[in-house]
Design a protein around this nucleic acid. Structure first.
Ligand SMILES: [Zn+2]
Ligand SMILES: [Zn+2]
Ligand SMILES: [Zn+2]
Ligand SMILES: [Zn+2]
Lengths: 174, 174
DNA sequence: GAATATTAGGTTATAATATAACATATCTTG
DNA sequence: CAAGATATGTTATATTATAACCTAATATTC
């Protein structure tokens, strides 16, 4: 159990990590990727991207919209959905199907399936990319003769801190 | 490649399989399970279950509603959503998060994660339960210290027949 | 078997999520 | 600047899902 609470690749950043660093890193990766592809990370898209990155918990489109509306009058659903479409298309964010919500991608530009551990207590989502999971799915699909295009893997449960908290006072009924 | 087109556990039933058998089997399993649990598979719930089982492709709630409305005047969204909630609660159907749709469960009563291969061409969904996939996820979650409650695994692609059709005429542009 | 509690369903309204369609603005390129 | 392409504004509407309140059916208790 000595390594049980380590978080490989910083899957769940601690509650006191410097999130400004996360955002800065994500923004600079996004800028680089857009420049490389010759697409425009406009003011609006960049702002929506920042709002998605406001935490490690997936955010709903209308949450984003209400925040955006504070700074942009006339912001409407298409405003945010179009930006989200762009960001998704370029792999800068992922959509969490089981939550109808969006979260920043930690490794934009790299091909990956998008596997998530999502805490139902605090809402945090950790993106992982486990090659064994991918291999197991690909192998089974191949056995069946199914041609895989994309995978949605969303695991719901409790992140380490929330699991520990639940263990402390969650065993009794009262 | 000799076994590549076999379908273990009949993942994708052929286009000419006797689907009446599927429905009959599912209904009788559902009845047994409800009897065993002392819950009521009412007329309405049974009918919604049959409609979900009308094919192996996931069906949207409002699709179900429009079909139900033909035979039940006054059917409204809660009519179908309540039945779906019941069926889901008892593991008789699964919700496909990436499609906002519902599909019958092939192994009700048994604990399983609900893993799906979904054909984007014909809409068919095959439920699998690959222990390697589960083990890989559980192992990675354990490394991270994440307590898994439930898994959403939905793989999009082409089922064997659709893949073959695509291979025949889908390589060129014109 | 009537009284009561529980569960299921009917009905109306509304919430939450997402897109269509068309107008205007901005950027790119020549 | 003209022309085309891309991005955004704007209004309306589609799609998916739930809230709230009421009535009916079924189960439980006396
Ligand atoms: Zn952070
Ligand atoms: Zn948590
Ligand atoms: Zn069938
Ligand atoms: Zn198919």
């Amino acid at each position: 159990m000595s390594k049980a609470t380590r978080t490989p690749e910083g899957a769940f950043p601690g509650i006191r990590h410097d999130h400004g660093d996360c955002v800065a890193e994500a923004l600079s990766a996004a800028e680089a990727l857009c420049a490389q592809r010759g697409v425009r990370l406009t003011e609006l898209r960049r702002r929506v991207f920042e709002l998605v990155w406001s935490s490690h918990a997936p955010v709903g489109a209308y949450d984003l919209l209400s925040r955006l509306a504070r700074e942009r009058e006339g912001a409407a659903p298409p405003t945010v959905y179009r930006a989200l479409d762009f960001l998704k298309e370029h792999g800068l964010i992922h959509r969490i199907e089981s939550l109808n919500a969006f979260v920043g991608c930690r490794t934009p530009g790299q091909a990956h399936a998008g596997q998530f551990l999502i805490c139902s207590e605090c809402g945090m989502a950790a993106e992982i990319d486990d090659s064994r999971v991918n291999a197991a799915i690909d192998r089974r699909a191949k056995e069946i003769g199914f041609a895989v295009h994309s995978k949605t893997i969303e695991v719901e449960g409790l992140c380490p801190p929330c699991r520990d908290r639940a263990g402390e006072d969650g065993h009794g009924i009262g």
